[in-house]
Simulated assay, not measured.
Amino acid sequence: MALFAWVMLGLALWHFTVFVPDHFWGGIVGAFLAALIGAVISGYALSGFGLPSQDDTNVLTVLQAVPGTLVALGLVYAYGLSRDRKDPGYATAS
């Protein structure tokens, strides 16, 4: 249940990426994958590298996904922005 909650929180935070310019590495799909992977890694690490049972899942368990999601989105955004600045045409090239 905790894994499901972490993924859902990562997905919820990913929705807010529409409010920033699209400089994510891989576009919106890259941001989506970063948010989900970051949420799971953060939740898993902060829970002691174990999955809490359904009875142990609470609001604090769900919030463990926030730091990983934000860090992952920040890293993917920073990398995409640096690529945009090096080669402004890479995102529009087909």
Rank of each mutant, 00 (worst) to 15 (best):
G38V: 02
S82K: 12
L81V: 00
K86Y: 11
D87H: 13
D84M: 04
V7P: 09
T61L: 04
A91I: 02
V20C: 09
L73T: 04
Q54V: 07
A72L: 09
I37W: 02
L60A: 10
F16S: 12
F24R: 00
A12V: 08
A34C: 07
A93T: 13
R83P: 01
G89Q: 14
P88N: 07
K86V: 09
L51R: 05
V7A: 15
G38W: 00
T69N: 10
A72S: 15
D84E: 14
G50H: 14
G43Y: 05
W6E: 12
D56W: 03
V59T: 13
A78S: 11
L9H: 01
L73H: 06
G43V: 06
M1S: 14
M8Q: 08
V66N: 05
M8H: 00
L9N: 01
T57S: 06
A35I: 02
A39L: 07
A12R: 00
V71H: 03
A72I: 07
R83G: 02
V76M: 09
F16K: 00
Y44C: 10
A12T: 07
T69K: 10
H23K: 14
V71Y: 06
Q64Y: 09
G89W: 12
T69F: 10
F32Y: 12
A34M: 02
A78G: 02
V20W: 04
G26E: 02
M8P: 01
G48T: 05
L60I: 09
T92E: 13
I41R: 12
L81R: 15
D55R: 11
S94D: 14
W6P: 13
G48P: 11
T17Q: 14
L70C: 12
S53G: 15
I28N: 13
I37Y: 02
G10K: 04
P21Q: 03
L51K: 04
R83M: 13
D56Y: 02
G27M: 01
S53H: 03
L51Q: 12
G26L: 00
S42R: 04
F19G: 05
H23V: 01
L75N: 03
G43D: 07
G68V: 02
W25M: 12
Y44L: 13
G80P: 10
M1W: 04
G50C: 03
W14H: 13
F32N: 04
V18G: 11
F49K: 07
V59F: 12
A78R: 10
V40A: 14
A2W: 04
V76A: 07
V66C: 02
L81M: 09
A2K: 06
V76L: 10
T69G: 08
M8T: 08
F49I: 02
G43T: 06
A45H: 13
A93E: 14
L36M: 15
G26A: 04
F16L: 13
V7W: 11
W14P: 06
